[in-house]
Simulated scan of single mutants.
Amino acid sequence: MSEHRTESRHALSDGLHAVASAEVLSRILAGQTQALAALTPAFPQITQAARAGAQALRQGGKMAYAGAGSSGLMALADCLELPGTFGIAPDRVPMLFAGGVEALLHMQGGPEDDPELAKADLKRAQLTTGDVVLCLAASGGTPYTLAIAEGAKALGATVVGFSNVATAPLLKMADIAVFLDTGPEIITGSTRMGAGSAQKVALNMLSVLVAIDLGHVHDGFMVNVTADNAKLVGRAARIVAGVSGAGEDTARAALAQTKGAVKPAILVARGMTVAQAEQALATTGGHLAPLLTDQK
């Protein structure tokens, strides 16, 4: 079998065109499930990457995402969710995507082969020493992504490489190498499938660990969210009520005082003033747990 297992034939591919629809779906699901099993061996590296990302953000730096094609889309999906879910400022989690916005509307292969685009994107991202960049490439050899990794290292940033090929240049270059051994695809070479799913789940895991490290998650609640629309006001009120133990009316009143910020609202709902809540959170680095000592 080829070293590039993502280009090899999957056993479930044989006769795929000729079987019933239910069987096609069953095989696809089996392939996806098999691919996700590759995450468990990568837990140590994902954890290490999350710690590096949290440290960069805690110190006022950036945790950037980079990729092209399907891998870039997986990176983009996680990147765009962080401000809304965990209250991380968008400029702290920049996205470097081969081809930019235009490539999102019409995917083409050319931009991923252009290292000059990578240099321009790096310049715009303004990465520096202490920052982290998460570079994704299923093959681990995409010129754009390799150029981002190389350029980021030269700037003093920590490079985390995600690839589905063990011998990938990206993994050899990375400071933290996350190998996801997803193997062949049901549709040969279509890494938007098993490889892409594993990459997306790996990033879900990483970003949640980062958020926990920063104090943005408490008991599974997204406590660093800011309620800035009707849906989030309701969600924020439920979070404040759930964590503080107060009623929803009290929770909404607290949110009104904190202008929608959930963490201080939780403390206000428990009896603090806004100023006291903000000061208390400053002393704990934004973590609620030390301030909720009477909770289990």
Rank of each mutant, 00 (worst) to 15 (best):
T6S: 02
S8K: 09
H10D: 15
D14Y: 08
L16C: 12
V24L: 13
Q32P: 07
L36K: 04
A38G: 04
Q48N: 02
A52C: 04
G53Y: 07
A56R: 04
L57D: 07
Y65N: 04
Y65L: 09
A68H: 12
A75P: 01
A77L: 03
L82M: 15
A89W: 07
D91G: 06
P94S: 02
L104Q: 14
L105G: 15
Q108F: 03
E116T: 06
L127W: 08
C135A: 13
L136D: 06
P143V: 04
A147M: 11
G151Y: 08
L155M: 10
L155G: 04
V160H: 12
V160W: 09
G161W: 00
G161R: 08
F162C: 03
S163L: 08
N164Y: 10
P169Q: 10
L170D: 03
K172P: 00
T182M: 07
T188W: 13
M193R: 10
G194C: 05
A202K: 13
L203S: 07
A211I: 13
H216D: 06
D219V: 02
N229G: 01
I239V: 15
G242H: 09
A251H: 08
A256H: 14
T258Y: 14
G260L: 05
K263L: 07
P264A: 09
Q276I: 11
L281I: 09
T293L: 11
D294K: 14
K296E: 14
